[in-house]
Design a protein around this nucleic acid. Structure first.
Lengths: 330, 330
DNA sequence: CCCATCGGTGAGCAATTGCTCACCATCCCG
DNA sequence: CGGGATGGTGAGCAATTGCTCACCGATGGG
């Protein structure tokens, strides 16, 4: 590696002088070139050299809670456009809040008048509205991307979430008036033919942003708690290889889509529709099973990942060692 | 002053993220803007802010012998385009060498095929050729800008200097075959009418660069040693307020030109001709009287100043306190 | 409550910068 | 001593950047 000490005195001096002129005095490369009797391209090359060699050192003092390297690693490994790791917190509740806050900040930056956001259910997603507060009014539309459930805590229901998001920015909410899960496939298909239902889902599919959580497959996962699935059903899915879901679309650890009798009775956006959405933002915090995240990331539908540090480290590690399987999980 | 700590968490984080994207990952401002959902100008403003606030810290590790600040101060105080302070040395001889080396480096950078350099006499100027060695052949012309003297050490005579400079780079030398000082004004005028003399002086006046030393007014100055002036004559000049000279043009401490019977008998470029030269490079080291430098700088003919650290500090101090006069000198 | 003021915003343009390319000198090997 | 490889160079162009300007919304004073 090139280093300061390999430099001759004269070259060191020249590089330092050029760097001073350019960075400290704020001259243009052209002006520096004139002053030193060099050609402009040469000054550019020398300035480059000054950087690589360390004569010029650009240091960025990051806030201590930022994990820029880890974020970049995940971004590159999973082909994401953006990864945000929320500051770490001791307990699950405030950790979830931090993640939600980070997601809210991201949304605030991304939303404009006319933006349409498709929203999932879930505890992580449900926490976002509390922290969502752009300084200005935004005429955005928030659309439920899946059905609801009377059994779930009300603030984790998509309709509730979209309403609160819309309230926070003076935008509009568009609920999906259908259950997340119905008795039969036939029933679902009929439901989808209802204009009120199909219209909302179509609007969700045309969203430019999706804000979704990731569900697990253990007996206490959201889908079970909300009554969509019985413990028995989720067990069957698990045995079929399911590790988690987005909007009720279950996937295995390799990101493969799982079709089963259970999954045919869900009302919500499918993976293909999700993929068509420009920016799919996933919010996950501590409580979720990391393999669920892994599986969902591998589907390739995700663009932006907002998560906590523990999950982030886990993902980075698994990504480096792709053979790891959930069976070996502790 | 803005500081890191006045920053809110959110803003600090955003600035750091932007800075990482731009400076570390090498994205364009546009790409960063897209990633964070901001407009490009806003990213630019935030990056500016990151710099002023210290999130981004551009540090230049200068070689310890460089005095960039002092150079800048002199540059600004005296309206120079360039000031080069040579590394300090204990004894006068090696100090002079360092200054000459620095001047040689500067010349090397500035010269091109076709360049014409007007050259003075003097011990400082005379030292430059030893260190002048561009890697390549340069078809430059070096012209004596003043007459010579048989009494002076041969290597400090302009004709000798131009010849050695030309040798060092494969260029051409153009000597001035006339004494630096003649008996009478009439004699000088006649001399100037000689084609050989006038032609060389005209060539010198059309030079794009002048490389000149500065002479003092004490009894042992170059002009006395070389026999141009008697001790008596230099005393008269001194009493008239002269502090030093360039090319035999004597000036007072305020940079005013001094006319006296003595100065009318000198053969060389005048101040006006010097001023017309694009880049006038002055080389001075330890041995010279600092007030001589001060006076010459104040004439406004100098563009580039190459000197040692002691003189540099003296000049900076005097410039801050312009009332100081040579009378009070120790 | 209205209007002037002010800080901040993006459009658009001019200047600066990065980069490709063809060229040249030099060096090293045959 | 020739000839190809190599490293460096500036011309020229495309992309990026800095900057001006008109505008907008908030703020505060009348």
């Amino acid at each position: 590696m090139a280093s300061l000490d390999d430099l001759g005195h004269d070259e060191f001096e020249l590089l330092a002088r050029l760097a001073f002129g350019y960075y400290e005095e704020g001259l243009t490369q052209e002006a520096v070139a004139r002053r030193f009797g060099l050609s402009r391209p040469k000054v550019q090359r020398l300035l480059d050299r000054a950087r690589t060699v360390g004569v010029v050192d650009i240091r960025i003092s990051a806030p201590p809670w930022l994990h820029v390297d880890l974020e970049r690693e995940l971004r590159e490994r999973f082909g994401l456009t953006e990864v945000i790791i929320a500051p770490g917190r001791g307990d699950a509740v405030s950790q979830r809040e931090e993640v939600a806050r980070a997601a809210a900040r991201y949304l605030e930056r991304r939303l404009d008048d006319g933006s349409v956001v498709a929203v999932s259910h879930g505890r992580d997603t449900g926490e976002v509205p509390r922290f969502f507060g752009p300084g200005r009014k935004i005429d955005a539309t928030f659309v439920s991307a899946m059905g609801g459930s009377p059994l779930a805590d009300s603030p984790t229901n998509p309709n509730e979430i979209v309403r609160r998001l819309a309230d926070r920015c003076g935008g509009q909410a568009k609920g999906l008036y259908a259950p997340a899960h119905v008795e039969s496939e036939r029933m679902r298909d009929e439901l989808l033919r209802q204009p009120a239902v199909s219209e909302t889902l179509r609007a969700a599919a045309r969203a430019s942003i999706a804000l979704v959580g990731i569900g697990g497959t253990d007996d206490g996962c959201t889908m079970v708690r909300s009554g969509c699935f019985s413990v028995e059903e989720i067990r069957r899915l698990r045995e079929a290889g399911a590790v988690g879901d987005v909007l009720g679309n279950y996937v295995d650890v390799d990101g493969g889509r799982l079709d089963s009798p259970e999954t045919g009775r869900l009302v919500g956006l499918g993976l293909a529709e999700l993929r068509a959405i420009e920016t799919v933002v996933v919010v996950v915090s501590e409580a979720e099973k990391p393999f669920a995240i892994l599986g969902v990331l591998r589907t390739g539908v995700v663009d932006v990942l907002v998560l906590d540090e523990v999950n982030a480290r886990f993902l980075a590690e698994r990504a480096r060692d792709p053979e790891m399987r959930p069976e070996r999980e502790v």
